[in-house]
Amino acid sequence: MQRLQALVAQLRDPEHGCPWDRAQTPASLAPYALEEACEVADAIAAGDRAGLREELGDLLLQVLLQAQLAQEQGDFDLDAVMDGLADKLVRRHPHVFETPGATPPAGQWDAIKAAEQAAAGTLRSSALDGVPNGLPALVRAARIQRRAAKVGFDWRELAPVLAQVRAELDELEQAISGADPAAISDELGDVLFSVANLSRHVQTDPEQALRAATHKFERRFRQVEALSPAPLSALDEAELEHLWQQAKQLLRSQGDC
């Protein structure tokens, strides 16, 4: 860690550092942190252990750069970041560090967080406070819904959740009939939000489910391209559907579910 800190400081050196690294600010680096986190998730999903090691390093670099910039501004340094994290881990896991082997009582994590916020004078006024705006939209929708459900704002059964999805689809269809772009966008958002809520009720991560569906489509589409005797743009709808079904059958015969 000391070697990495020294390298990052050298990259930021005003005279002999890297021009790109010297030009960065916390705001300009923020998108890279999100991108690197997504690449970590991709490596995990692909089962790429070597890739995961590399991507974790790239993500760590973003932490080091942000800490270096904060140190240069006199705000805090990497030691403060690590000390704060270590203290938080100990504080939030008394069942591990104070009474090893104990079963944590229900709600312990949330109670400890609330006590921390009260002590810091940052007690949240809403159950939804603290969900980052920068999260991918689908992830944030699921997080918001979980927060609301924690305080009892939720359906107790699956049937009304499914009914809500159908109702939102009906409203989207009406908006499409009215040819109002703003209404279509609004209703489509409601459909996506209700589907994210459905995923929570059936205990499925919507981000992972959509990621898997996209990969499945990608594999099948590439197979369609390989099977097609002509450019896809030259084929009619019936020919494209026939190729799609061929691709699905071929991939299934190869063990692709």
Rank of each mutant, 00 (worst) to 15 (best):
Gln2Asn: 06
Gln2Arg: 00
Gln5Trp: 06
Gln5Thr: 08
Ala6Gln: 02
Arg12Ile: 05
Arg12Phe: 13
Asp13Leu: 02
His16Ala: 10
His16Leu: 11
Pro19His: 01
Arg22Ala: 09
Thr25Ala: 10
Thr25Tyr: 04
Pro31Ser: 08
Leu34Thr: 13
Glu35His: 10
Glu36Lys: 10
Glu39Phe: 10
Ala41Glu: 15
Ala45Thr: 14
Arg49Val: 13
Gly51Arg: 12
Gly51His: 11
Gln62Leu: 03
Val63Tyr: 06
Leu65Gly: 10
Gln66Phe: 02
Gln73Thr: 12
Gly74Cys: 03
Phe76Leu: 12
Phe76Ser: 15
Asp77Gln: 06
Asp77Tyr: 04
Leu78Lys: 01
Met82Ser: 06
Met82Phe: 02
Met82Thr: 00
Asp83Ile: 00
Gly84Val: 00
Ala86Arg: 12
Ala86Pro: 07
Lys88Gly: 01
Lys88Trp: 06
Leu89His: 03
Arg91His: 15
Arg91Val: 04
Arg92Ala: 01
His93Leu: 02
Pro94Ile: 09
Phe97Gly: 05
Thr99Ala: 09
Thr99Gly: 03
Gly101Trp: 10
Gly101Phe: 11
Pro105Glu: 00
Gln108Leu: 15
Gln108Ser: 10
Trp109Tyr: 11
Trp109Ser: 01
Ala111Val: 00
Glu116Trp: 15
Glu116Ser: 10
Ala119Val: 10
Ala119Thr: 00
Gly121Lys: 14
Gly121Ile: 02
Leu123Val: 08
Leu123Gln: 08
Ser126His: 14
Leu128Ile: 03
Asp129Ala: 12
Gly130Asn: 06
Val131Met: 05
Gly134Gln: 04
Leu135Val: 03
Pro136Cys: 03
Ala137Phe: 11
Ala137Met: 09
Ala137Asp: 03
Ala137Val: 14
Ala141Glu: 08
Ala141Leu: 07
Ala141Arg: 05
Ala141Ser: 11
Ala142Glu: 03
Arg146Ser: 12
Arg146Asp: 08
Ala149Glu: 14
Phe153Asn: 13
Asp154Asn: 12
Glu157Pro: 03
Glu157Leu: 04
Leu158His: 05
Leu162Cys: 12
Ala163Lys: 10
Gln164Phe: 07
Arg166Ile: 13
Asp170Gln: 15
Glu171Met: 07
Glu171Asp: 09
Ala175Ser: 14
Ser177Ala: 15
Ser177Asn: 07
Ser177His: 07
Gly178Ile: 11
Ala183Phe: 01
Ala183Lys: 13
Ile184Lys: 07
Ile184Cys: 01
Ser185Val: 07
Leu188Phe: 04
Val191Phe: 00
Val191Asp: 15
Leu198Ser: 02
Arg200Pro: 01
Thr204Ile: 13
Ala209Cys: 11
Leu210Ala: 14
Arg211Val: 05
His215Trp: 13
Arg219Cys: 02
Gln223Trp: 05
Gln223Glu: 08
Pro229Ala: 10
Asp236Met: 04
Glu237Val: 11
Leu243Gly: 11
Leu243Tyr: 09
Leu243Ile: 04
Trp244His: 10
Gln245His: 15
Arg252Lys: 15
Ser253Gly: 08
Cys257Asp: 14
